[in-house]
Nucleic acid binder design. Structure first.
Lengths: 222, 222
DNA sequence: TCCTAAAATGAACGATCGTCCATTTATTTT
DNA sequence: AAAATAAATGGACGATCGTTCATTTTAGGA
């Protein structure tokens, strides 16, 4: 073999250490914020040596980028999981997205703190943008497409505008509820938040979505 | 005079320097974020000497607290101004709140960056909470009271729940649109955002609010 | 088992952090 | 005009920042 053959045990250990650094970074951000997340703080949490960050990531900055990336991927993975078990009607998929966004797996103390920490720090804004804008666009177009289907069922004067407004409003509300959770985690009520969103979209699409969730109305009944 | 009499010229100069430090701090936060807002950065922007922060605020931390406080007060002042020129019907006051929250005076590059910077930094969370929770509660109860009035007009099965949901949903949407502005300031469209919110509350209170704004319906018409 | 090379270590570096305080400057009072 | 006092200055302090690299440890192949 001319080049160094991969050695599975070594690769595994290295990968484990890299992940330990990322986890320690995110833990520190959750507890102390980005400003207080120093190299010393990270390596002590990971119980590794000082040089590891430079060795595996080149710099502390790159480590932060990797941490952002994983955070974005986690949201997206949760969403795909939720959609994979959801029904295939538009109303079911829309409600699945809302349930996922407000569910404990996606919206919790850890994730919301990480999310707002990166958003708040201007230096990190461009980094997080790289890994969240794509997701945002997908989420946006996903919701829009489903709302567009529902808009056809209603006798809206402008079905596209209805779908655009529903998408924009739903996303804004979900965003707003994340902020609620950040600022008042104890008073937060997932079911109430879901009810408010459903109330919004159910009046826009009365044929397809009710206050309790999707409606499977016989088309002939119209 | 037993104690030191106030000397107006001195007091004025001192006050001016204190404000210059606060402004420089906020400028730096907007441009560089909280983490990069160091004492050196602040005093260079304010063109003052290094010891001024300790002299006037005791510490850099206290200066940040003062900066947060002013930011919260600014929002509140804008809101009161908007309400003072608004009509006195519930629907007018509600729309005035929305217009103010999404208006240029309140929602702009500077304010949104400051807001999210403080929110994102865990260390600052408790400080900002001191000066924003009161405001949030006032905003919340203000909207709720007005929505509660409108809910009576509608023939809702549960007027209180309707008002709670409308309040919560409106606040969440406004929050979400602030995030939109933060992440995509160029693509942001104030009128579109207002339209989405109005669409939401107009279907909840069809007798009082239309897609274009307040409705002054003759009660006898019902 | 010894050798090679990848992985991990941690002491040390210069830079910068927030704070402090002796000194200088500016204003008001005597 | 001199004395008193408040305000402002900026050099210096120890602590901590992110990074570097010579050295040690560890795993895999010979």
């Amino acid at each position: 073999m001319p080049k160094s053959a991969r050695s599975p045990v070594r690769r595994l250990k290295t990968q484990k250490n890299k992940q330990a650094l990322i986890d320690a970074t995110l833990d520190s951000i959750v507890e102390l914020g980005i400003a207080a997340t120093s190299v010393t703080e990270i390596i002590e949490r990971a119980d590794l040596s000082r040089g590891m960050i430079h060795l595996h990531f080149g710099s502390k900055d790159n480590l932060l980028v990797e941490a952002v990336k994983q955070t974005g991927e986690l949201y997206y993975r949760n969403l795909e999981d939720a959609l994979s078990v959801a029904g295939n009607t538009s109303q079911e998929r829309i409600v699945a997205v809302i349930d996922c966004d407000l569910g404990e797996r996606t919206l919790n103390h850890r994730s919301v703190n990480i999310w707002y920490a990166f958003r708040g720090e201007a230096r990190e804004r461009s980094k997080i943008a790289l890994y969240t804008d794509t997701r945002d666009k997908k989420l946006n177009s996903l919701l829009f497409n489903e709302f567009r289907v529902l808009a056809e069922v209603e006798d809206a004067s402008d079905a596209t505008e209805l779908a655009v407004d529903a998408t924009h409003g739903t996303l804004a509300m979900m965003e707003g509820f994340w902020t609620d959770f950040l600022l008042h985690p104890d008073a937060f009520d997932r079911n109430h938040c879901k009810r408010v969103i459903l109330r919004f979209i159910s009046v826009l699409f009365p044929s397809s979505i009710g206050a309790e969730g999707p409606i499977f109305q016989n088309r002939a009944m119209r």
